[in-house]
């Protein structure tokens, strides 16, 4: 296998290119002096970025989106982990029913779920706001979190947990000291996946949001007006650049921290 060492990085780069290509184009067009995305390019401009700064609603929408995404992903991961642990570690009455029902929310078109939740919130008199959006996002992300965390728990034997308890640790202590560290990568993965879904969710959010706007709602409704397209892609460009930088920064900090610790 040694002679194929280049294959992995090559494959990774290919996928990265495939995934990032459209984004590079969006960034390119965000500096293009034209409201339609076509070649040849018209000329360099930063006016879309200036327009961006003059649109305070966008900033508010961005804040709202971030808040919903972080909060709902946290709860989705937490609830998903609890459910996954219960399912993979215990047998109980209704287990199969539970795991089925828990996967249902991802098969129902989000639009239908949105209408259903809106009817429900109205029936019990809960006013719409970002919390209702967050609740909806937890419902749709819970199954994904369960799937990711469950996949890691499945198979990894319960021996470690039992050993820990034999050594006198309580069950909840074992969860904290043994189980959670083991499933940590899947917790992060579940959070990431939830966050990504939440960040770009439109159909469900449309029905569950009150007068607070999230970024997808704002962007999608702007797309009804062709002249607003550049603004929309500029937002996309900013989001992707900032998030990539954050990712790189956090990775660098982590390693720097590890090195400092060793030294």
């Amino acid at each position: 296998m040694k002679q194929l060492k280049w294959l992995g990085p090559f494959y990774y780069s290919l996928l990265a290119l495939f995934l990032y290509l459209p984004i590079l184009f969006l960034i390119l067009f965000s500096f293009n002096d034209s409201v339609v995305l076509t070649f040849p390019l018209k000329g360099f401009t930063i006016r879309w970025y200036q327009q961006l700064l003059q649109t305070p609603e966008l900033l508010a929408a961005f804040r709202n989106t971030l808040w919903v995404a972080v909060t709902s992903s946290f709860f989705a991961t937490l609830l998903g982990a609890m459910a996954a642990i219960a399912i993979s570690r215990y047998t109980f009455w209704g287990k199969r029913l539970f795991s089925s029902v828990a996967t249902f929310p991802i098969v129902i078109p989000y639009l239908v779920l949105g209408v259903a939740l809106l009817l429900f919130f109205n029936a019990i008199g809960i006013p719409l706001n970002l919390w209702t959006v967050g609740i909806g996002h937890v419902v749709i992300n819970l199954p994904y979190a369960m799937l990711i965390i469950g996949a890691r728990l499945a198979g990894f034997s319960a021996n470690l947990e039992e050993a820990s308890m034999d050594l006198g640790e309580t069950y909840w202590g074992t969860l904290r000291r043994v189980t959670i560290p083991i499933i940590m990568p899947s917790l992060i993965a579940a959070f990431l996946s939830s966050f990504s879904t939440s960040f770009d969710e439109f159909a469900l959010t449309f029905f569950l949001t009150g007068t607070k706007t999230t970024l997808p709602i704002y962007l999608y409704s702007q797309l009804r007006f062709p002249q607003r397209l550049p603004l929309a892609i500029t937002v996309a460009a900013v989001v992707i650049v900032i998030s990539s930088l954050l990712l790189i920064l956090s990775e660098w900090l982590r390693h720097w921290g590890e090195k400092a610790y060793k030294a």
């Binding site: 984004i23 770009d200 992707i240």
Partner: peptide
């Protein structure tokens, strides 16, 4: 590789 998902799918 997941970051691109934070850009609007439509775009």
């Amino acid at each position: 590789l997941i970051l691109p998902a934070w850009t609007s799918y439509l775009l």
